[in-house]
């Protein structure tokens, strides 16, 4: 299948990316070219193949639930775009 303008707009919305109206045809072309490349996977039958999630088939380690980090709120907020009284500020969400 081939992506059209409205598909690109929908994907950009899902990805929370503002893209210029004028660049949509370019993105559509490039994304379609990439998907055509990706379609080459369908040349092989993989029905009986187990998907590979980790190269070494490792399992997630468990650890004790103990405090390992100290509070560095001021340091972390010093690089935030907008903060006030220790909280991160964003446009009003609830009326």
């Amino acid at each position: 299948m081939s992506l059209d303008k409205s598909d690109v707009e929908k994907i950009a919305h899902l990805a929370r990316l503002a893209i210029d109206e004028s660049t949509i045809p370019d993105y559509a072309r490039d994304l379609n070219n990439i998907l055509t490349l990706v379609e080459q996977m369908s040349a092989v039958n993989t029905d009986a193949v187990t998907p590979m999630a980790h190269p070494l088939d490792a399992h997630q380690r468990l650890r004790e639930d103990v405090v390992s980090e100290t509070d560095q709120r001021e340091l972390f907020q010093s690089i935030a775009p907008k903060t006030d009284a220790g909280v991160y500020l964003v446009p009003q969400v609830i009326e």
């Binding site: 992506l3 690109v8 994907i11 950009a12 899902l14 990805a15 990316l17 993105y27 994304l31 990439i34 998907l35 990706v38 996977m41 369908s42 092989v44 993989t46 193949v49 187990t50 998907p51 590979m52 999630a53």
Partner: peptide, 26 residues
């Protein structure tokens, strides 16, 4: 990001990501 978002979106996961993980095994 857009290719990835598309490949992971509802209805496409098996055709793309799962298929790729199987190819990866091969």
């Amino acid at each position: 990001i857009m290719i990835g978002t598309y490949a992971l979106s509802a209805g496409y996961y098996d055709a793309y990501y799962l298929k790729a993980q199987k190819c990866r095994r091969l």
